[in-house]
Simulated scan of single mutants.
Amino acid sequence: MTLPPAARSRRLILVVDDDLIMLGLLSKFLAAEYEVRIASSAPMALGLIADGGREPDLAIFDISMPGMSGLELAGHVRANTTIPFLFLTASESGHTVDLAAAHGALGYLLKPLDLAQLGAAIVAALARADEIRGLRDSETRLSQALRQGRDTGMAVGVLMERYKTDRESAFKVMRDHARAQRRKLADVAAEVLASAESFDILATRFGAGPRN
């Protein structure tokens, strides 16, 4: 199996299958290119994940396992982690495809496995997982920027009301204060909002409402 340079780093893959022969086959094959962890049941897999440490870059779950199925395992993983996963199944029915999609899988692998196709599928799944992770990180940064921008605007409004000044002057005072203390503007804004909230809470104790 020839992989592109980016895929040759030791990415961590978790393989979960109650068929020990299949588990051994997958582990041996993937170990040539990746770091591999194995589990023969869903509870065992959840234990490995809960132990902390490094989170797998990709997981492969057999759908049909006694006790907790791969689908149930996927539900737990999706609800509590960001680990991307593939399903392993002997069925290629439309229902199986629908189930895989509904549970958030990147795809599914068919038994019996074609090892050449398996290698390509792993590379493609890792690439897709990296893309999704990048989008998620971008959304997080955007949400944080919007929140910080909203907090800054609210803090400017608090200063305008409390010191009877205009927006530009209030912003300049807050910005200059942040620069003088070598702090982020968003942190100063959060401090202003926290102080305003404290003033309003204390005002109620004196029988007055929040200042308008």
Rank of each mutant, 00 (worst) to 15 (best):
S69Y: 09
D17W: 04
D98Y: 04
E35D: 15
V158R: 15
E197Y: 06
L48E: 09
Q117P: 03
R10D: 14
D19T: 05
D51G: 14
E139A: 11
S69L: 09
T81R: 12
A101K: 14
D187R: 11
I60Y: 05
T89M: 03
F29W: 13
R133T: 04
E161Q: 15
A124Y: 03
D98V: 00
A45P: 02
Q181A: 14
L106Y: 01
A42M: 01
E92I: 08
V173P: 03
L12N: 02
E131L: 03
V192F: 08
Y108H: 05
F87Q: 13
M68G: 08
F87P: 06
A125F: 02
P210F: 12
E197F: 00
K184R: 15
K28V: 08
V97D: 11
L159N: 09
L30M: 05
R10A: 14
L71P: 01
L115Q: 01
R179A: 12
S198T: 12
G67M: 03
A129G: 03
I132R: 09
E139H: 05
I49R: 10
L58M: 07
A145Y: 06
V36E: 10
P66E: 14
R54V: 08
A59G: 07
I132T: 01
G119F: 02
P43G: 09
L14K: 07
M68Y: 10
T140V: 11
S69N: 11
F29K: 14
L23E: 04
L88Y: 00
M1Q: 06
V123N: 01
I60C: 06
K164Y: 10
K184V: 01
A31C: 07
V15D: 04
L146A: 12
V97P: 01
V77F: 01
G149M: 11
D151F: 06
G75A: 09
I132W: 03
R183I: 04
K164M: 14
G157T: 11
D17Q: 06
A155C: 06
A32R: 15
A125M: 01
S169M: 13
F87W: 14
A186S: 15
P112Q: 10
R37V: 09
I83M: 05
L26Q: 12
S198V: 02
R37K: 13
G53R: 05
F29G: 07
F199A: 13
D98H: 08
A74W: 04
Q148K: 02
R147L: 14
H76T: 11
K172L: 08
Q144G: 00
